[in-house]
């Protein structure tokens, strides 16, 4: 029988199921075969390689980057209160930014504002820094999540269980730069600027010793290699 929990498939007879699966497979085959073949023959640069591990207790992880997707019931009026917070901060979540492991967060209301979809991409395992948030930004965490039915409070020993109980593992999780953390990106941005200034200084340096010259030539060659983005 099918593994799917889709209730529409439960009334299917065995023969209907075989027919449906065969035709689905036939339709998907050329594309699936192509993906499988490409995955096999492509020589991925290990620096960009992803993976599909579990992100600790729940969620998927690719390299360093994990996903957390949760669906929960909102308290009456919760959607409006959250909207006011988002409007006020204009997408600028101070505190959340200090966390420095969050790549992004999204809050989506549905079912007439009675439910919320929370989805985020972040570095590492999901529960590693929960205890730190509980002491460093308890107000922000509670402000955001107190509108959810049953939220036990960020300082509650039950908070990890509460989040895990509302999480749904993503079926597919693809990350363009799975090895790169938010902290790494900030460093790269800083280095880009510093490297520019360094190269400016070197460009006018007339008295360059041979070792410096060789090192700079190598550096220039390496950074002058444009590369297509290979997922």
């Amino acid at each position: 029988m099918t593994d799917s929990k889709d209730p529409r498939l439960t009334d299917e007879t065995r023969l209907e199921e075989v027919r449906r699966r065969a035709s689905e497979l036939a339709a998907d085959l050329p594309q699936l075969a192509r993906i499988a073949l490409e995955t096999m023959i492509r020589d991925h640069n290990p620096a960009y390689k992803g993976s599909a591990k579990k992100a600790g207790r729940a969620g998927k992880q690719s390299g360093n980057v994990s996903e957390l997707t949760a669906i929960a019931k909102l308290k009456p009026g919760g959607a409006d209160r959250l909207r006011r917070i988002f409007d006020l901060t204009d997408g600028n979540m101070d505190g959340a930014q200090r966390v420095s492991t969050l790549h992004d967060m999204r809050f989506v209301f549905f079912d007439d504002d009675t439910r919320i979809l929370f989805a985020t991409a972040y570095d590492g395992d999901w529960d590693t820094y929960i205890n730190d948030f509980a002491t460093k930004i308890p107000g922000l965490m509670d402000l955001l999540f107190a509108n959810i039915e049953g939220w036990p409070g960020i300082d509650s020993p039950k908070v990890k269980d509460f989040i895990a109980d509302h999480q749904i593992d993503a079926a597919g999780w693809f990350v363009a730069n799975p090895q790169v953390t938010v902290v790494d990106v900030r460093r790269y941005q800083r280095m880009e600027k510093a490297l520019g200034a360094f190269l400016d200084a070197m460009a006018v340096n007339k008295e360059m010793d041979p070792a410096t010259r060789t090192a700079l030539e190598k550096l220039s060659t390496e950074i002058a290699k444009p590369e297509g983005v290979d997922y």
Binding site: V99, D132, T135, R186
Partner: peptide, 9 residues
């Protein structure tokens, strides 16, 4: 530290 951390916990 680069990441929000509470050393005391």
């Amino acid at each position: 530290l680069t990441i929000l951390t509470d050393e005391n916990i």
